[in-house]
Structures are given as structure tokens and as C-alpha cells.
């Protein structure tokens, strides 16, 4: 990927700022998401809540189904490849979708290496739990970052933890004297040049969305107020009682995150949210955020 292509890929993510990206499993859901005001859809066979329930190996979705979703909407289409599975990524690039999510929601294909994203023209978004992880993914060529959160739980606590961790580390970087940056970068496993850039910019050098456990308009506004640039909602919409209504409400709460009256209005009469999961009830081996490094 040349420098200009990478810049264009970062810039597409910039155009998604302030918006909501929704998981959809078929063309009909994709239409509902688009009409509700989603800025993009994530095409996948099973939402994270079902992947969690079903167990087994979760792989890239059937390209036929992704292609059908791509035909049914005009907004950008994203799809997931397994961590390190660069051939799944090659297939998704050949399918000409708009963005690949190298995602911990799927079963990792490689426990040592993530995909070398610089080899692709198509942009990648990657999950991160802290600043080091985010900067490592950017070093590998990611054009957009999202928190990992804990997908499929309807529990926002992990997304909050990850966003706060990134913000805290950025604040530490900004406030430390230059000579301390090398040691800080070494301890956190940060690529040094990117640590310097984050220090200069006072934020990640690419767009950073919140993901993993967002289920309500209030969750979305919370993440926006914590400083993220936009929202991914996975299971939260189509596992709820009234998906179209909830989707519209989360779009409004994301756009008006600083306006409690608007978020209040958006929160009314939505019906049941998706059932939530307590993180401590999930066995360590089944927690998705620990996948990848």
C-alpha cells in the first residue's frame, strides 16, 4: 500500500466520525440499519452473542452472503477476517468490500502474528485494549482502531476500560518529558515513532471507535463523551426487541452525545435491550478481548 492509498483509507474512516456501524447478518437487516442512519454495516453470519453461545471455530463469513449485503445497501460494507488470517483478508479484498475488521470475535488463525496490513490496498480496522495495542496495529498498517470491549455481552464495562486505558496512557505520554518516552514505550510495547506521534497529537493518529458491549443509546453517548470518534454496535441492535427503533435511537444518541435531553428522548420506549452478561461469569478462555496482543 502506498502512502497516498493509506491516507485515503484513514480519510474514509474520518468521514464515518460521529456515526454508528452496525452488525448485520442478512440483506434485510442491512436495509434496516441503512434506513436507521448507520454509516456502515459489518456483514457477518452470526452476531458475537451467537458466536459466543454456539462455541466452536468462528471464521470469515460466506462471501456469497457478504456480496448480497453489499448489493443491498449503498453505505460502506465491512467484514471480519480472523486475526492473522491474511488469506481471508485477500478474499475480502478481492470481493471489493470497503473495510476489513481483523477481529478477535472470530477465532484467531495465528497466535503470533497479526496480518501485515501494509500489503493490502483495502483498509483495516483493528481492536485494541490499550494504547500499546492500538499503536502496534497502526504500525502493521491499520487505518482505523476500535476498542475491543467484550463483544456479545451487552455489557459496556470492557469498552469503557479500554477507552479509559488509551486516554490515560495518551495523557501520560503528553505530560512526560521526552527522555521518559523511550522507557514508557518499552514498558508498554509501543512502537517509539508512533508513541511520539500520539504524544504530539494528544490522541491516536487515526480514527478510534468504541466497540464491544454497546447496547443502549446511553452506552453510545457514554463512549462518545469518553472521547471516541464513533460507535460499533454488534449484537446490541438485532438481539433487542425492536431493532429498527433501537438502531435509530443509537444513531441519535451518538450524534447528540453531549445533549442529555436528546439522549433521554432517544432512550424512551425502546423495549427490551439485549440480555446482558456479567464479565466475571465468562470463563477466562471464552473472553474475546484477550485474543490478539
Amino acid at each position: 500500500m502506498d502512502k497516498k492509498r493509506y491516507e485515503l483509507n484513514v480519510q474514509l474512516a474520518q468521514m464515518l466520525k460521529g456515526g454508528v456501524i452496525m452488525d448485520v447478518t442478512n440483506a434485510q437487516q442491512a436495509k434496516i440499519a441503512e434506513e436507521a442512519g448507520a454509516v456502515a454495516v459489518m456483514a457477518l453470519e452470526r452476531v458475537p452473542a451467537d458466536i459466543r453461545k454456539d462455541g466452536g471455530v468462528a471464521r470469515m463469513s460466506d462471501p456469497t452472503m457478504i456480496a448480497e449485503i453489499k448489493r443491498s445497501v449503498s453505505i460502506p460494507v465491512m467484514a471480519k477476517a480472523r486475526i492473522g488470517h491474511f488469506v481471508e483478508a485477500q478474499i475480502l479484498e478481492a470481493l471489493k468490500i470497503d473495510y476489513i475488521d481483523e477481529s478477535e470475535v472470530l477465532t484467531p488463525a495465528d497466535e503470533e502474528c497479526h496480518i501485515d496490513k501494509t500489503k493490502f490496498s483495502i483498509p483495516f480496522v483493528c481492536g485494541a485494549r490499550n494504547l500499546g495495542e492500538a499503536l502496534r496495529r497502526i504500525a502493521e498498517g491499520a487505518a482505523m482502531i476500535r476498542t475491543k470491549g467484550e463483544a456479545g455481552t451487552g455489557n459496556v464495562v470492557e469498552a469503557v476500560r479500554h477507552m479509559r486505558a488509551m486516554n490515560r496512557e495518551i495523557r501520560q505520554l503528553v505530560n512526560m518529558p521526552l527522555e521518559e518516552v523511550v522507557g514508557f514505550a518499552k514498558a508498554g510495547g509501543f512502537p517509539y515513532e508512533l508513541a511520539l506521534e500520539a504524544r504530539k497529537l494528544g490522541r491516536l493518529p487515526v480514527v478510534n471507535f468504541a466497540a464491544g458491549g454497546i447496547a443502549t443509546p446511553a452506552d453510545a453517548a457514554l463512549m462518545m463523551q469518553l472521547g471516541c470518534d464513533g460507535i460499533f454496535v454488534g449484537s446490541g441492535i438485532f438481539k433487542s426487541a425492536d431493532p429498527a427503533k433501537r438502531a435509530r435511537a443509537i444513531v441519535i444518541a451518538t450524534a447528540y452525545f453531549n445533549d442529555p435531553l436528546k439522549v433521554l428522548e432517544a432512550s424512551m420506549g425502546l423495549g427490551e435491550a439485549m440480555p446482558g452478561l456479567e464479565i466475571s461469569d465468562i470463563p477466562e478462555a471464552q473472553r474475546l478481548a484477550g485474543r490478539g496482543w
Binding site: K17, G18, E34, E35, A36, G37, A38, A40, S74, V251
Partner: peptide, 14 residues
């Protein structure tokens, strides 16, 4: 600005 026109359309209306 640029963004997603379907999203902006909806937000402009409501």
C-alpha cells in the same frame, strides 16, 4: 460536510 448522506438525511429531518 462529507459523511454518509443517508445518515445525514435522517438526522437533518428529525
Amino acid at each position: 460536510p462529507g459523511g454518509e448522506s443517508t445518515c445525514l438525511f435522517r438526522l437533518l429531518t428529525i
